[in-house]
């Protein structure tokens, strides 16, 4: 290990790695100067800075509706995905049969199928169900995409859960549902929460399905951004970008701090 880390070869690899990280992060930062431009078109500010594009984002009806609709849809989708994903993960954990593995693969499919494929199918079926351009329609669609992430994160927590705890509750006379509620739920909530955040983020960011299933009545933020890029590359998109990147930084930092706390809790006296 020491030998490896000290070598010239590894120093070179490390340099390349930092270059790659620069490639991943630096291009995104272009949105910061653009968002402060005083002009109406995409440009870098020269001397004068302006907050007009931030003002647009918070006052313009379209952008406000986008933020509102995205929040409603993402909250709804996350809630539904949490319920479905958690039920499924607990069920699978207790089954651990061959059929259970098949069910697990089924529950993970929405994560892997190319979005355009399920967008097409959902469009046709949503027309039949009368769900096109409705909040419930988009919430349902996004919830399906969120379920796998909840299943994964809850399963991860369950794999460290001692099943004897629940058996003890059962042998002390608790019914099966009570035992689960009193022993499993209090112990898996970090996984449920993490899965919920994932599902929220997936929905908040989703564009392909939204393009197919909604028109005007439901108009999420990604749809607004999509229009903003396609029609007349507006600097307001840069302002939204800055806000979204800030939110992402906060979320990732929060997640890292959270993981550290959880790890410390797992190491400490139980």
């Amino acid at each position: 290990m020491e030998r490896l880390r000290g070598g010239f070869g590894f120093a070179f690899t490390l340099c390349l790695a930092w270059l790659l990280i620069a490639f991943l992060i630096l291009p995104l930062l272009i949105v910061v100067p653009i968002s402060f431009t005083p002009e109406r078109y995409l440009s870098l500010p020269e001397g004068t800075y302006s907050l007009r594009h931030y003002e647009t984002v918070f006052t313009d009806r379209g952008w406000r509706k986008g933020i509102f609709d995205s929040t409603v849809v993402a909250l709804g989708a996350a809630a539904l995905a949490i319920v479905m994903g958690t039920l499924c993960a607990i069920g699978l954990w207790k089954l651990s049969s061959r059929l259970g593995e098949t069910i697990r693969i089924l529950a993970l499919t929405p994560m892997i199928v190319p979005p355009i494929v399920h967008a097409l199918g959902m469009y046709r079926v949503w027309v039949d169900y009368g769900l096109i351009d409705t909040y419930s329609g988009l919430i349902l669609a996004h919830a399906m995409k969120g379920i796998p992430f909840v299943v994964i994160s809850v399963s991860a927590v369950l794999s460290n859960f001692d099943p004897r705890l629940e058996q003890a509750a059962r042998s002390l006379g608790a019914g099966p549902l009570t035992a689960m509620r009193l022993t499993i739920l209090p112990n898996i909530w970090p996984g449920v929460l993490a899965g919920g955040v994932f599902a929220f983020a997936i929905s908040w960011d989703e564009i392909v399905v939204a393009l197919f299933l909604t028109r005007r009545r439901v108009d999420t933020l990604p749809r607004q951004i999509w229009d903003g890029i396609q029609d007349n590359i507006s600097p307001a998109v840069a302002a939204v970008g800055v806000l979204l990147i800030l939110a992402t930084i906060l979320a990732v930092l929060g997640k890292m701090a959270w993981d550290r706390r959880m790890a410390a809790r797992a190491r400490g006296p139980a």
């Binding site: 991943l24 992060i25 291009p27 995104l28 272009i30 949105v31 653009i34 995409l42 983020a201 960011d205 564009i207 990604p222 951004i225 999509w226 890029i229 590359i233 998109v237 840069a238 939204v240 970008g241 979204l244 990147i245 992402t248 930084i249 979320a251 990732v252």
Partner: peptide, 16 residues
């Protein structure tokens, strides 16, 4: 960070 940044925002950045 890079993993989580919206695909639309990254595309916008490249265009800009």
């Amino acid at each position: 960070l890079s993993f989580w940044v919206s695909v639309l925002i990254r595309t916008f950045s490249w265009i800009a």
